[in-house]
Design a protein around this nucleic acid. Sequence first.
RNA 1: GACCUGGUAGCUCAGUUGGUAGAGCACCUCCCUUUUAAGGAGGUGGUCCUGGGUUCGAGCCCCAGCCCGGUCACCA
Length: 566
Amino acid sequence: MQLSPLEIIRRESLQKLRELGINPYPAEEFKTTAHINDILSNFDKYEGKEVVLAGRMMSRRIMGKASFAELKDASGRMQIYISRDEISSEEDPTMYNTVFKKLLDMGDIIGIRGDVFRTKVGEVSVNVKELTVLSKSLRPLPVVKTDADGKIHDAFADAEQRYRRRYVDLIVNDHVKETFIKRTKITNAMRNFFNERGYLEVETPILQPIPGGAAARPFMTHHNALDMPLYLRIANELYLKRLIVGGFDAVYEFAKDFRNEGMDRTHNPEFTVMELYVAYKDYNWMMNMTEELLEKVCTETNGTTEVLIGENKVSFKAPYARVPILEAIKIHTGFDVAGMKEDALRDVCKKVGIEVDETMGIGKMIDELFGEKCEHHYIQPTFITDYPKEMSPLTKEHRTNPDLTERFELMVNGKELANAYSELNDPIDQRERFEDQLKLSEKGDDEAMFIDQDFIRALEYGMPPTSGIGIGIDRLVMFMTNNASIQEVLFFPQMKPEKKAPSVELNDDEKALLKLIETKSPIALNDLKTESGLSNKKWDKCLKHLTKNNLAKVNNTDDGLFVEKV
RNA sequence: GACCUGGUAGCUCAGUUGGUAGAGCACCUCCCUUUUAAGGAGGUGGUCCUGGGUUCGAGCCCCAGCCCGGUCACCA
């Protein structure tokens, strides 16, 4: 392994700590008595009191026999003051002069015991009396500094590095941690909301023999013992509805779903959806619940019902506008497509500049029309309702119009945040809808749904009228934290594999040159160059590559330069 | 997948018709007991993304590729 000079120094320090009898990775519990944020916000309570803290040393200012350092624990950062004669003595200054000043580095995890005080310039600090090494850091951290004006210098900002090394991102970029704390607040708020109503949180299979409940391309895997294909779920809908058949009044699940589709700043191959199903309700009830839920989530995480999303100020205060999808299309394209046949609809699509092909059915085209021409207009939370039947195979037919379904999507900031319906519970209708999907699939739509026979069997036993909803959690977190990229709200977004570390692989020219060196060693450099027959540049590169990897050596002697094998 | 932009020290970035690879921070050595992004002095550190090509000479020009980002396409 190739170590940088900075890493070599740290490894040497590690060794010296051991030689001084200090275990750089001690096993014992380190009992702390306070958290940094608590000290900072309750200084009066802590002033003059002794505290024990543990955390990572984020900066160090050494000034002779005294130093200041910044300690960061899970709650925040504060300054600590370390003087030679407190943690060691004039007679034996090892702990200060050697351990603290020489062998410790930024990024090391330490424990301190000392008194809380305020410095002359007013900074709350801890006067350290005892210092314990808890974990030596062998890699240097990026040094991010914030000046008096709050301006950040040398930010660790490269998105790729930040996502690949999220642990570093979390250490040095405090605002990143805030995003993820908020994410958990959001899901906790939702759980509390549901649990207070007696809804049951459940878990259903991720590995599914039939990937149902959504139109998407699945990931496929294989079970060896059963020798059968299995799919990673694209949705959990059909399983949750089986549980409603089984007699639960309301079940919900925070589900990781997996879709084998494109990746961009709003799509990750795995993502989180909260799905909820409530018996004896319809989609009107669900709209009311959704408004109430999101208003509460927003208030609990941001302290207000208004959030800034990019340029837009968005209010999650209930109620939200409700617009039928065909109405939306009429408003934004001027075409009334209600009741249109497939051919007529295809003409409309062409007129407004949407590319269509023969595999696209009515549902797909309406979806395109809305997605292309309408979706981005809905900045404030808006329920788009009553989708055509063809694009909603799991949804109950609309009570007043058999061409439509009782379905809504919630649009926020021009994006879909939630999808819900009065669930189809007529097993015969459901079978027909699945068969229609099969026809689409035969037409070439590779996202059309499979027929789930067991799900139909479940419906045949009878499912109460039920309303269900799926809320995209990653998207919700993006909205609530004002992040434009899904990668910012996932701890570990999917990334292409890292480039392999360069291995010592020789190309043909280098192999030939090495062979020449091995047979003629030692040989005058200029003779070797002539014999190799390589161009100037190639010669230089090849020889440097060999010497760098310690396969050949150039000796500078009184008689000139000679190349030797190693 | 297409196009655009970029890839230089651990981090943030300069780099002149193509002529000895730079700065700040970090790191190392020395001096300094309550400092405020950065105290002072000196020093170490580089496959300039990779591979070809042009050239006496390439971080820079040409070709091919890789990777990040962006726009579009794909994607309820």
